[in-house]
Design a binder for these strands. Structure first.
Length: 185
DNA sequence: ACGTCATTTCCTGTTT
DNA sequence: GAAACAGGAAATGACG
C-alpha cells in the first residue's frame, strides 16, 4: 500500500507534506474549499492539536481496509478518500444520514465523530458543539446546539434508526439505519 | 389549504 | 457546577 507521512505540520505556516495520491486516484471530486470545517475550528487548531488526528480508515474507491493501516491522518491524507459516493451525501436531508455520511467521510469529519465499534455501528460524538454547528450549517440554522440535536437523535430510538448505548455521547445505528456497514458499501 | 413528517425549541428533572 | 441524558409538549418549515 501507499506510505503515508507519520508527521504532520505543527503549524499552518509550516510547509505541508506533499499530497499523497493512490494509483487509483487521479483527481479529487471533492469541493476545493474547506468550508466543511471552517466554522468548527481554525487551521491553527487543526494543526496544533494532536487530538485532531484520529485513527484513519484508508479508502480506495468503494472499499475499505482498516486493518494494519492504522496510521494518523492529516487533512491532506483525507484527500485520498476521493471517489466515495457518500461525499456529497453531506447534503442528505435527514440528521441520521448526515451523521452517517460524516462518519464515512474522514475529510469533512475532522475528528468530530469517531467509530467506537465499526462492525456494530457504534460511534461516539467527539466534538458535540462542532457537530451541532455543522448540522446547523447544513440546515442554515445558527441557533443549533448539541442539546437540541441530541433531542432529535433520541427520537430515533423510537423508530429503530438508532439504538440506545448507555455511554455519554455514544450512539449505535439500529436495524432501520442503512448505508453505514463497511461490507455493504 | 391541509395533514404529515422530521425536526426544532423549550422545559423540568435526573445523572454523570 | 458543567455537560449529557430523558422525554413531554408545542412550534416550525418543507412537502405532497
Amino acid at each position: 500500500g501507499p506510505s503515508l507521512p507519520h508527521n504532520h505540520s505543527p503549524h499552518p505556516s509550516a510547509s505541508y507534506p506533499p499530497l499523497v495520491m493512490l494509483d487509483s486516484v487521479t483527481h479529487s471530486t471533492f469541493l476545493p474549499n474547506a468550508s466543511f470545517c471552517d466554522p468548527l475550528m481554525s487551521w491553527t487548531d487543526l494543526f496544533s492539536n494532536e487530538e485532531y488526528y484520529p485513527p484513519f480508515e484508508h479508502q480506495t474507491g468503494y472499499s475499505f481496509f482498516n486493518d494494519a493501516e492504522e496510521s494518523k491522518a492529516t487533512i491532506k491524507d483525507c484527500k485520498l478518500s476521493q471517489g466515495c459516493h457518500w461525499h456529497m451525501g453531506l447534503q442528505s436531508s435527514h440528521l441520521w444520514e448526515f451523521v452517517r455520511d460524516l462518519l464515512l467521510s474522514p475529510e469533512e469529519n475532522c475528528g468530530i465523530l469517531e467509530w467506537e465499534d465499526r462492525e456494530q455501528g457504534i460511534f461516539r460524538v467527539v466534538k458535540s458543539e462542532a457537530l451541532a454547528k455543522m448540522w446547523g450549517q447544513r440546515k442554515k440554522n445558527d441557533r443549533m446546539t448539541y442539546e437540541k440535536l441530541s433531542r432529535a437523535l433520541r427520537y430515533y430510538y423510537k423508530t429503530g434508526i438508532l439504538e440506545r448505548v448507555d455511554r455519554r455521547l455514544v450512539y449505535k445505528f439500529g436495524k432501520n439505519a442503512h448505508g453505514w456497514q463497511e461490507d455493504k458499501l
